[in-house]
Computed example of a mutant assay.
Amino acid sequence: MSEEQRMEAAAAPPRLVAHGVHLAYDQRRVVHGVDLAVPTGRVTVIVGANGCGKSTLLRGLGRILRPVEGVVELDGHDLHRMRAREVASVLGLLPQQPVAPEGISVGDLVGRGRHPHQGAFGRWSADDADAVARALALTDTHDLAARRVEELSGGQRQRVWVAMMLAQDPHVLLLDEPTTYLDIAHQVDVLDLLADLNEERGTTVVMVLHDLNLAARYADHLVVMAAGRVVREGPPADVLDEDCVREAFGLVARVVADPVTGCPMVVPAGVRERRGLACSKVSLT
């Protein structure tokens, strides 16, 4: 995707918008009156402390959870009034702990991502086969295609789920903690893959991440939540400062420039540091 096309995509109206959305579980409200316009063709990352409502908001944006008040719109239409297949052809959601059918192979699971693109009779096409092969290759899971999902390690399983989402080829991709179970090298691999997907295809990516430094590195648009509300949003350099970290996480920290990217980098100040105790290394030689 050229830079001109990226600029055109960024200037396009938001396809996914939340208007005054309240979300609840068993009458217990978790998200309170959120207004959020997801920038088209950009990477949006939602961050916040545990229990702040970030995963719940993602479920509301992904049609898993119906708002008790407010509305989520996709291309100007109430998301919850649209047909499921119509939504799935545009929007894909990877939840935090997806469950695969017992005994299913990796290839078959990834192939399920093609269902929204198949007709009423579910005929398999050459395009479907190409999309699955491409998704397996991009996530380095091609050699796992014949294995059962339940046999895989947590990290392998997570890459397979990402492959299924890539096979679906949605215009808007929602992911809840896509780096769960992955070591740091594979975390960066998956996030690089999503960034490439955004850059090359213009796919709008929205994901929840716990790691603030990875969030700041990969986000075009950072959304910070606290107590079920959006407290800040915008480019990471404009949003992520020491006051923001203290407000959202109750954490005293320094925010400095990442030496690799120049993005904001959060350096926590623990109890020992606040007491003035520096970390020391004792030489044994």
Rank of each mutant, 00 (worst) to 15 (best):
A9C: 07
P13Y: 10
L16E: 09
V17H: 09
A18Y: 14
G20Q: 15
H22E: 14
H22L: 04
Y25I: 08
P39K: 09
G41Y: 12
R42C: 00
A49S: 14
G51Y: 02
C52A: 08
L61V: 01
V68M: 06
V71H: 05
V71I: 11
M82Y: 05
R83Q: 10
G92M: 02
L94I: 12
P95C: 09
Q97C: 06
E102S: 11
S125F: 05
A133R: 15
T139S: 06
T141C: 05
V149M: 11
E150W: 09
L152G: 07
R157S: 13
A163P: 07
M164R: 14
M165G: 06
M165P: 02
M165N: 04
D169V: 08
Y181L: 04
D189V: 00
D192N: 15
D220G: 06
A227T: 13
G228F: 04
V231S: 10
R232E: 00
P236N: 04
D243Y: 02
C244R: 03
V245G: 03
R246E: 11
E247M: 05
A248V: 01
V252G: 08
V252R: 07
A253R: 07
A253T: 10
V256F: 08
G262V: 04
V267R: 15
A269H: 14
R272W: 09
C279A: 14
S280G: 08
